[in-house]
Design a protein around this nucleic acid. Structure first.
Length: 306
DNA sequence: AAGACGAAAGTGGTTGA
DNA sequence: TCAACAACTTTCGTCTT
């Protein structure tokens, strides 16, 4: 757990849970997501003996996709090289370098702009570094394959980010991406599908549970309500209520039911808004949940208690 | 008066001939 | 390439709290 946060700023609880993969710290008392943009300062390797440590330790900037040239820099040959060549070879050398220069500057110029945009959107959404890296990698591949042609750079950036989020189980909704990037939802979805298909990036359907922490915290629901929602999700997955359905809708319905059970009622409208679905969808899922999982008694119980 | 409910028609995407 | 199809949305009228 990084030292930045020791106490929950919302309820002053010290029962914090650090989800390292998602880069989130979650307060188990009030469910608040405290910091979801963090850098992992710890070493990612372990030293077993002195020799091992020395060989794994590194200095210098790491190679990274968030720099437009991957932090390296490429050039065909150095000036000193062509002094050794003569005649034909020398011309060939210049020609190659010229081409290399033209191609690489075009791509690099594009990348430079695109990665700036990518960082902007990513920091707006407070995405973890790992997702930013992944999306930069996807974008770089897309440019190299010429997939950006005919599409706006921004939409491909948004598509790459969306894909990277999904791959890292840190799903953001298309609505959120759309708001952050200023690109239409449709457009993002289209480029997202196109790019992932062309690059062969396999994406698993996202798990509704991955949305719970975030939705729950923006609805200010308690940790019990949140874990109840996750429990409901697990049961509904067993009952095969989840396949084919939009994960956000299911997550929203589970949270809604859970809020009723714990007497922290939120309206369908409120839940629908944070989840980016309509009330109707929540109602449909909600109805299925009640029918299949026999939850009415739990709701009635809390009603009687008042 | 606000929220919940449900019917009906419309949208964008997938699938399979 | 087209039509059938499922999921979800929009809209709107009615019932409940």
């Amino acid at each position: 757990m990084p030292e930045l946060v020791k106490k929950c700023p919302e309820c002053a609880g010290i029962n914090l849970f650090w989800n390292r993969d998602k880069g989130e710290i979650i307060c188990k008392d009030c469910g608040l997501v405290i910091e979801d943009k963090m850098v992992d300062f710890s070493q990612e390797w372990r030293e077993f003996d002195s020799e091992d440590g020395a060989s794994k330790r590194r200095t210098g900037a790491p190679s990274t996709y968030t720099q437009y040239d991957q932090g390296l820099g490429t050039e065909v040959g150095q000036k000193a090289d062509f002094m050794k060549l003569a005649g034909k070879d020398r011309n060939k050398f210049f020609r190659l370098r010229k081409w290399q220069y033209r191609i690489s500057t075009a791509i690099e110029r594009n990348l430079k702009l695109a990665l700036a945009e990518l960082k902007r959107v990513s920091s707006y959404l407070k995405l973890p570094k790992s997702v930013e890296e992944e999306s930069a990698r996807i974008y770089t591949l897309a440019v190299q394959r010429g997939l950006v042609r005919g599409r706006s750079m921004e939409s491909v950036v948004a598509g790459a980010l969306y894909a990277a989020c999904r791959r890292h189980d840190v799903p953001r909704t298309l609505d959120e991406l759309s708001e952050a990037s200023g690109i239409e939802k449709k457009e993002i979805g289209r480029t997202y599908r196109f790019v992932t298909r062309e690059l062969g990036v396999t994406i698993l359907p996202s798990n509704p549970a991955d949305y719970i922490a975030r939705f729950s915290s923006s609805l200010k629901l308690s940790a019990e309500t949140q874990s109840k929602a996750v429990e409901i999700l697990e049961r509904s997955q067993k009952a095969e209520l989840t396949s084919g359905r939009g994960p956000t809708g299911i997550a929203a319905a589970a949270l809604y039911v859970s809020s009723l059970i714990h007497g922290e009622k939120r309206t369908q409208r409120e839940v629908a808004d944070v989840a980016g679905v309509t009330e109707v969808t929540i109602r449909n899922r909600y109805k299925e949940l009640l029918e299949e999982l026999d939850l009415e008694k739990d709701i009635k119980k809390t009603k009687k208690r008042r």
